[in-house]
Design a protein around this nucleic acid. Sequence first.
DNA 1: CTGTTAGCGCCTTCAG
DNA 2: CTGAAGGCGCTAACAG
Lengths: 343, 343
Amino acid sequence: MSPDKITIHDIARILNVDSSTVSRALNDSPRVTEKTKNRIIAKAHELGYQRNDLASNLRKNKTNTLGVIVPRISRHFFSSAIAGIEETSYNLGYNVIICQSLEQLEREHNNINTLVANRVDGVLVSISMETKNYEHFEGLRKRKIPFVFFDRHLDIPDTSSVLIDDFQAGFDATEHLIIKGCEKIAHFSGPMHLEIYKNRCEGYKAALLKHDMEFSEELIFSSRLMEQDGVDNVNKIIELPYKVDGIFSANDVAAISALQQLKRNGYKIPEDIAIVGFSNEGISAVIEPSLTTINQPGFDIGKRAAELLISQITNSNKNFINEKIVIQASLVERDSSQHNMAF
Amino acid sequence: MSPDKITIHDIARILNVDSSTVSRALNDSPRVTEKTKNRIIAKAHELGYQRNDLASNLRKNKTNTLGVIVPRISRHFFSSAIAGIEETSYNLGYNVIICQSLEQLEREHNNINTLVANRVDGVLVSISMETKNYEHFEGLRKRKIPFVFFDRHLDIPDTSSVLIDDFQAGFDATEHLIIKGCEKIAHFSGPMHLEIYKNRCEGYKAALLKHDMEFSEELIFSSRLMEQDGVDNVNKIIELPYKVDGIFSANDVAAISALQQLKRNGYKIPEDIAIVGFSNEGISAVIEPSLTTINQPGFDIGKRAAELLISQITNSNKNFINEKIVIQASLVERDSSQHNMAF
DNA sequence: CTGTTAGCGCCTTCAG
DNA sequence: CTGAAGGCGCTAACAG
């Protein structure tokens, strides 16, 4: 007999029991004698048996697998979130299938189809920049596959999300700059149809309002989350007829490239211009202490999202309830999270 | 009929054909009339049918799924590699299941079991720091599941790997410092039982030798890839009775934390001490231009590894051949790879 | 406590 | 070109 492809039937035949007994023993059913159970387990081990989860899952109609869709795995925030998801899943006996949308709606659509075809028990998703409506998520709902948004979400009724309090974070970041004495604060934003960027911008505005500072559209710079954006924005800021002495960047990429571009132009940070940028575990470790950051706890968000999803899977009566977990982002001068130990 | 769980039998019944015809049509078999094929496809679409890949895979004994095991997803090099793997897999119709070993042998073992149970068609793995022998990979071989190492590998007969030319990279890095005029060059290493760190160190030694420079054990600092290591190493260097004017760090974490610690101590980079550190797409974008890096093309390695594995899966006669793809790491002053556009 | 039976949903011979 | 039949490997009812 070839050593690959041992089945419960092989074990059953060798031990002169029925395959269902083998199945029960291997699943640690209490309805098998300790003795036969041990015999079976020993033999299975000896033969190097590995259950075929495909068959098992097909039969049980449950895969213990979560699907995850992120815009881009290599963005540190998302890989941190995936690490959190994986950690929770591993502990709770779930596998994880990862998909990237690469910010494309069509791919996000395909990802969902793949996950459905693989009969995942639930889906965690952070939407692409192109995603503006939710019809493709209705397919999941129809199939009773629960899903939870994390970070980038759509405002769909009866849908759970794990989010950062972006309004508050934007407010804190801006107020921090105001308190430091900044008088002209620019804001680097992201695609404005994404809730997270809208909310961060609202926080920015609210902080200005609270401190009786003038708001000007001219100081809002949109962005496609590219490195070049930070450079371009700095070039525009330098051209302005007045002096900008603070920047609140809602995305880390622009914050860092802006920092470098400012330095190239002889600016001192934070003396000439203070910067507060969004960041997350790890990245802030490599940038200068001069750059204050709003820490996005990606790992924690992943963990919480996975926990929430799995609880919805387990208590199937709780599917598709509207549960919002809002996590506060913290303003830090220097990120000392343990997750920056390796990047 | 509930809208979830449509099967080929449902479609067959509605259309008064046999389920096998539906199966054929949906798989675009040439042995079905265009007309019935279209009828079937239209109806499937209308009902929102999604093939149950579990059943299909079980029957076909092929999952079109690759398993990936990495030490830690959130390390940027690995998330880049995963991005490359995912990209290739997506294009070639494969799914990807991701596992983390978290640098633990036991988890790596569990990961393999999980992947086997899920009947992946092949495995891509970068081993944990604890992995020193390969008995757990023999299980894969027995089951005829091909696997390919990338980056961190074991030297197993008849096993393919996609690697960086670490010796050459270490040599180049060190020679770069020598040419810049450094006379005392320290080396920050990693766990020495890992081939990659051993080879980088050998490259370092070879460069010193070529340029008639003295090699001293005192200037080799080992590391567990923690941020603290760079700090500790710098503190030791400062205490030395002679002046160290160059550092070649075989790991990015130590390079960056060392850079910061040196600055805290008033050193100017690269005037007082020049540093060359390993890095990879993205990370070097956030560090100072003063820090020269050896760029590890993680995305490319992932791509190549996935291509190689899938080709072995496809040509099953080519399984378990010893194919080594060696990729050159490039020394760059400033990484301008497109993949650093977002992190 | 163990065996028998019957599928999970799909694909693939083999007939017609 | 299409239908009938069988089985991938496993589990869950139902007997005994």
